[in-house]
Design a protein around this nucleic acid. Sequence first.
RNA 1: AGACUCGUGGUGUAAUGGUAAGCACAUCAGAUUUUGAUUCUGACAGUUAAGGUUCGAAUCCUUACGAGUCUACCA
Length: 506
Amino acid sequence: MNNFIIKEINKDINNGLSKKKLKFRFAPEPNGVLHLGHVKALYINFKLAKLFNCKINLRFDDTNPKNENLFYVKKIINNIKWLGFKWNKLSFTSDYFLILYKWAKKLIIKKKAYIQYYNKNTQKNYNVYDIDKNLYHFNNMKLGKYDENMFVLRANISKELPNYHLKNPIIYRIIKKNHYKTLNKWCIYPTYDWAHGQSDYIEKISHSLCSIEFQNHKPLYNLFINYIYNKTFNSLKPKQIEFSKLNIIDTITSKRQFNYLIKKKIIKNYEDPRLSTLNSFKKKGYKSIYIINFIKKIGFTKRNYNISIKTLDIEVKKILIKKAPIIMVLFNPIKLIIKNFKKKYVKWIKLNNKYKIPFTRYIYIEYDDFKLKHDNTFYRLSLKNYIRLKYSYIIKAYKIIKKKNKIKKIYCKIYKNIKNIKSTIQWVSYNFIKKIKILNYKYIYFNKKKNKIYNINSLKSIIGYTDKIYIKNLKINNIYQFLRIGFFYFYKKNNFIKILYMEKKY
RNA sequence: AGACUCGUGGUGUAAUGGUAAGCACAUCAGAUUUUGAUUCUGACAGUUAAGGUUCGAAUCCUUACGAGUCUACCA
């Protein structure tokens, strides 16, 4: 693995940064569960910690009690454990509320921050540039004497700069809601800009990796660290490095949209298989390695890109094609009569030392695997093609019976010593058929340009048929290949979830 | 509109200013095959454009064009 982040860190080391001082952090806000996009940030941070053999913190960036709660903290921790990443220290930005508050007061004293308030009568904002008054109002804010939206603390930087984030950004606001961790201790909360870099500095993080939308905040990040810098406490200034975030066109990774879908009752929770949260993948029987392999594949750069969720499917398929045991399943069965096979006879075909499947005179095959009109590009069953029934005989059709223009029965004969069979198909014996339920879905996705959500109703249940003897051998929570169809997760008795279809080229 | 960031085959990524721009996926052929899968072999295809600096530019500079992010009391 080589990417610009590693290069940048190596550069810092060559410029004198001690390797011992390297430290990373993953800092999610506990306002939702993790999705595919988070894994990118997770992976790079934990990978770097491993690569440089240094420490990594898991820090919950909990500066806004309106959005956050303990439920998500627990969920996120479980998600990270599921992925197999181990952190050295668990921390919370809320642990630092007191010191952040003290630093903000210092800022006021240094005339680098001021109070702004909104006067209802005149509908205007007023700024206070008097240190004592600023401290007075800030204290009142803290004591809960003011309402939300009336008073804020702003940094005093410049109104002239073109970068909006440097235009006297708000660093403290009033939020009168209990914080899940600090409870009712605070009613003022630092904003991201005033909390994140400072927390990195407190935790002695050397490189603070984040996605590219924070690049506009970088000057502010550096400026605020310079404000609070104290050589005796920590001589290392953390460095923010941005990388492009995971942009998948055919699934949703935005929490806002998850919430919208829940609100509209399109999905029940974050575990819906049409989503791309880690929980929904877990529910579909995915192993974390599938997702990690996918993230590795994507790489880390600063350029923006759009990729398809199919890239994940490719990685999943690579693993499953080697691992997943095969079963024969039909979706749309059609009856086959094998004329030269004994009536009422059951031939048990050994698949391996353990398992057998029954073959009889009457079997089903997939409707699409037969074609009446001969065609050179069609390899499967027809009146001309010899084909092999998987694990068993070579057959050819010689007669069909139609009802209302639809084929109802196909008469076949077994042939021997036929070579160059082009196709092998799946089948199930008539008396041994078992109905199964398959949950089929497509990812819900949002088209930004068209401002439209797609595949809302894509979760559909379909019926399949398989062998009732063989299905008893299957293990719950395993993934199986439905021969020539795709990969399916066996999640409860007689029930499967689709993982991916094999691509059909015919 | 401005500020910031980024432009390498269809897609995702490599290349201390120095070999003929490498790899993977996709696509298309051929071989193997009891999955039209897999596997193997091969082919196709690229530095956004124009200038400049240089013995030498994907890389540095300028301009144009294109894309993304931001312009929240969210992170």
